[in-house]
Amino acid sequence: MNAAYFQMFARYSQWANAHIIAACDTLDQIDLDAPREAFFPSIMKTLNHLLVGDTLWMARLRGEILQMGLADTPWPLYDDYKAARIAVDDSMINYVDTLDDAALADVLTYKNVAGVTYATPRNVIMGHVFNHQTHHRGQLHSQLISAGHPSLEIDMIYFARLKGYSQ
């Protein structure tokens, strides 16, 4: 994978997250916290898990140590979550824009949340980050439908067509 590929995915992620945010903007905090079917049992808990994961990975990629649990809810209020999500999406774009193909091939050594040390190429990590987001955005999509929101069109192909990545 080359740097341009991950730059496209960072922008897709920001775009898809903006659609999730727009859908969540139509709900009140009670609806966001209400029990829903998915691995994380509410929209807010699923949103938080995604943002915790992205925050942890961005810290690791920058060589920072950050202690958070994958089920933590550091942004229990939607407005706080929304501000943090927008900031992290901007940060991810800024980060991937600094990478070249050689940097993506570099191996990063880091500790996971359990303290186990791993060494993984950056391109594999970046692939995981964007795949993880897609996985949980699918769960959010289902949770939003259960909250009465219409289905979202956030597949990658819609973004690619809109932004000229597919001709």
Results as ranks from 00 to 15, higher is better:
103 A>W: 02
101 D>T: 11
39 F>S: 05
29 Q>E: 14
123 N>R: 15
106 D>W: 05
137 R>G: 04
129 V>I: 13
147 A>F: 11
167 Q>I: 15
107 V>L: 10
133 Q>C: 07
163 K>V: 09
9 F>H: 14
86 I>G: 01
21 I>D: 03
92 M>N: 13
128 H>N: 13
115 G>Y: 06
54 D>R: 08
130 F>W: 00
144 L>P: 03
76 P>Q: 09
47 L>K: 05
162 L>P: 00
104 L>W: 00
95 Y>T: 10
146 S>N: 15
44 M>I: 11
78 Y>P: 01
136 H>L: 06
154 I>F: 03
107 V>S: 14
140 L>Q: 01
41 P>M: 02
130 F>V: 01
16 A>P: 03
89 D>I: 02
93 I>E: 08
145 I>T: 09
32 L>N: 04
15 W>I: 13
107 V>Y: 07
30 I>L: 06
163 K>D: 14
48 N>C: 05
104 L>R: 04
108 L>I: 13
100 D>A: 12
34 A>C: 08
89 D>S: 07
7 Q>N: 13
88 V>F: 09
43 I>C: 04
10 A>Q: 07
77 L>E: 15
5 Y>I: 14
103 A>T: 06
4 A>W: 00
83 A>D: 07
99 L>K: 01
153 E>P: 00
148 G>L: 11
151 S>G: 15
5 Y>N: 10
163 K>S: 15
90 D>I: 07
61 L>A: 12
126 M>V: 13
87 A>Q: 09
58 M>C: 12
5 Y>R: 09
21 I>K: 03
131 N>L: 11
109 T>M: 04
114 A>Q: 14
52 V>K: 01
95 Y>L: 15
92 M>P: 03
89 D>W: 02
92 M>E: 13
93 I>C: 06
137 R>W: 02
24 C>N: 04
7 Q>E: 12
85 R>P: 06
101 D>N: 15
21 I>T: 11
101 D>W: 07
152 L>K: 01
87 A>F: 03
155 D>A: 05
86 I>D: 00
7 Q>S: 09
5 Y>H: 14
166 S>Q: 08
74 P>D: 10
53 G>S: 15
150 P>C: 13
28 D>W: 10
109 T>K: 11
99 L>N: 02
38 A>P: 01
67 Q>F: 06
156 M>E: 08
23 A>K: 02
157 I>R: 03
18 A>Q: 11
103 A>R: 11
153 E>L: 12
51 L>N: 08
84 A>T: 14
2 N>M: 11
70 L>K: 04
94 N>P: 00
137 R>D: 07
75 W>Q: 04
114 A>H: 14
85 R>N: 13
13 S>Y: 12
164 G>L: 02
59 A>T: 08
135 H>Y: 15
140 L>V: 09
159 F>D: 01
18 A>K: 11
75 W>M: 10
124 V>F: 00
88 V>E: 10
37 E>Y: 09
9 F>W: 14
47 L>H: 05
111 K>N: 12
159 F>I: 02
50 L>R: 02
88 V>A: 03
34 A>H: 07
120 T>I: 08
27 L>R: 10
125 I>P: 01
54 D>E: 09
34 A>K: 10
